[in-house]
Design a protein around this nucleic acid. Structure first.
Lengths: 343, 343
DNA sequence: CTGTTAGCGCGTTCAA
DNA sequence: TTGAACGCGCTAACAG
């Protein structure tokens, strides 16, 4: 660990008034010049701009926003930044927003309602121009989202939505795609299909489970086994669940998994116990396995269209911010079942 | 796509003045009451607090910040949010900061200097309390970071640092760990070791390559092959590089890879061409393979300590913000070589 | 074309 | 214990 002395070169922040008094004009003239207002003399404008550039003037957005003129900051709340699905969305949204002149602040609820609520307060206090939210597993109340609306802050949900809040939503066709995946397993001859998924509180997991249950019923299959994971989806939990399933008298012959992490845990244990995939166990997982090609066998996956989700979400929010559009539009993005070798 | 009409319940934002006039006190009394200032009558304070709570008063941080009183927003710039190393850091920093009452805005430079520069301007304009940066591959100039200092905004670098800027830095012992990894390969009998890494502009990759080169020289080995990837590290590029290497007359018998993505590409091609690992090809990669246990064989990895990096980085920044500490402290976090089966 | 004035919401001075 | 007044930096309305 090295230590130097740090020479702080900071000088007082330069304002339009400083520029004005230096150039013997009024600060409103400076403001106009900086905005390329046509009503200002070309010469003075050039002088102002030159001076501003030379002294590295930067406008104070706090003042601008206080006046209520403009605000280009958007808040984004996700349960976890480092889960691949959300990491992708965050990355893409950040890019889209930046291109259009917005700045995105990312918040992480850690799947906790309390934290989500605190974040919403922060968003209100900082006067964000809008909020994009995918809710925590924990979240059953919606009072905090109503607060957001009360303060006139546009809100769009994506993926995990709060259904009793009237706000635009971008969702995935979880029911349909799970029906498709379950049917796919059945048609391949599997008859003891287990479904490992998340809490029924969240629309995403509820819809998936409904799709699974309905399909099992439709085909008059005896074995029906929904396993609801309350903890964070992790490789460890995936291992545990697999062990429990495999040691039970009611062994499944196929698993439909809601999370890449869980699937990885399953794969590890299956390999350890020399369970053959897809012969002894069929497997389909939600989420793209970064390197499906490497796994033996290659995984059949249900891929969510992150790019489309991010795009649609941003468009809805921007429409609300710019055009004050208050329609509650619900867009459905279609996930895709990519058949590979694991079933 | 469904559409509803949206009933906007927004009301005018309530301010301390509103509360004041409603309760027939002065707004400065309200301000004091909300801050639990002991100089305000207990009764009036309770009335004010009750009213504020009931009407869901939220303070306007723009006004607070404009006055220069406080600011709890920290900016974080990373090249890519969705690369696992950075996703982890972002996630952890966000948590640490939130716990301590700060809010983190995440920005993505997309490895572009120009974008990084624009982001810095945004940070200055929004008066962030501090900035945490890992620089873009592109970044060779440091004028924008000097600007940050000029405006008195505390700055801490982590991992990829700008070496000619006097600011605290948290770095990884890239040189030492690469020496160790290269020696490890040599001692296992590999004699034609290729090094696939990033641009020499960045300290991280320069130090790694120096460690590699020095070790090869030290052991008087003929074969020396540093491959500098200019593009984004992707699976595709990994495949290409492997193919080029394997088709050359000067085939390597081991590869040291700077990125998980590149390594995945290598693994895919190696499997396709039935190249045996570790017999025909030894492999060590930087970064943790989420599921090292699944790959055949399990990968030997160089793991960076994301938790320690995030922790140290935040502490340095907080020290600057809170204590106005201006020492240039450089902390080194030690990466670890985790031996598995791939070499 | 430019200057004057006012006010966004807040916290802090000074005065009562 | 409370009130009055000021100013943070900026933009917009109005006046000249």
């Amino acid at each position: 660990m090295h230590t130097f002395v740090f020479y702080d070169t900071m000088t007082k922040r330069i304002t339009i008034k400083d520029i004005a008094s230096e150039l013997n004009v009024h600060h409103s003239t400076v403001s106009r010049a900086l905005h390329n207002d046509p009503r200002v003399n070309e010469k003075t404008r050039d002088i102002v701009l030159a001076y501003a550039r030379e002294h590295e003037y930067q406008k104070n957005m706090n003042a601008v926003q206080l006046r209520g003129t403009a605000n280009n900051a958007i808040a984004l709340i996700v349960p976890n930044i480092n889960h691949s699905f959300f990491a992708d969305i965050v990355s893409q949204l950040t890019d889209i927003a930046f291109q259009k002149g917005y700045v995105i602040s990312v918040f992480q609820s850690n799947e906790k309602y309390e934290q989500e609520k605190e974040i919403i307060n922060t968003i209100i206090q900082h006067n964000f121009a809008g909020a994009i939210v995918s809710i925590a597993k924990d979240t059953q109340k919606s009072d905090h989202f109503r607060l957001l609306k009360k303060f006139g802050i546009p809100l769009v949900f994506f993926d995990r939505v709060c259904e009793d809040v009237m706000a635009p939503k971008v969702i995935v066709n979880n029911y349909d795609i799970t029906v498709l995946a379950t049917e796919c397993l059945i048609k391949k001859g599997y008859s003891r299909i287990a479904h490992i998924t998340g809490t029924n509180i969240i629309n995403v997991f509820r819809n998936r489970d409904q799709g699974y249950q309905d399909t099992i019923n439709k085909f008059n299959i005896d074995y029906k086994n929904s396993i609801e994971i309350k903890e964070d989806f992790s490789i460890e939990i995936g291992k545990e669940v697999f062990n429990k399933l495999w040691n039970s008298t009611e062994k499944p012959d196929a698993i439909l998994s809601s999370s890449v992490n869980l699937t990885l845990g399953i794969l590890i244990q299956a390999k350890l116990l020399e369970v053959k995939i897809p012969e002894q166990l069929g497997l389909i997982t939600f989420g793209s396995m970064l390197s499906s090609e490497i796994y033996q066998p290659q995984m059949t996956t249900i891929e969510q269209q992150e790019t489309e989700i991010a795009q649609a979400t941003f468009e809805l929010l921007e429409d609300m911010i710019v055009n004050k559009n208050n329609q509650v539009i619900i867009k459905e993005i279609k996930a895709q079942l990519i058949l590979r070798e694991s079933c």
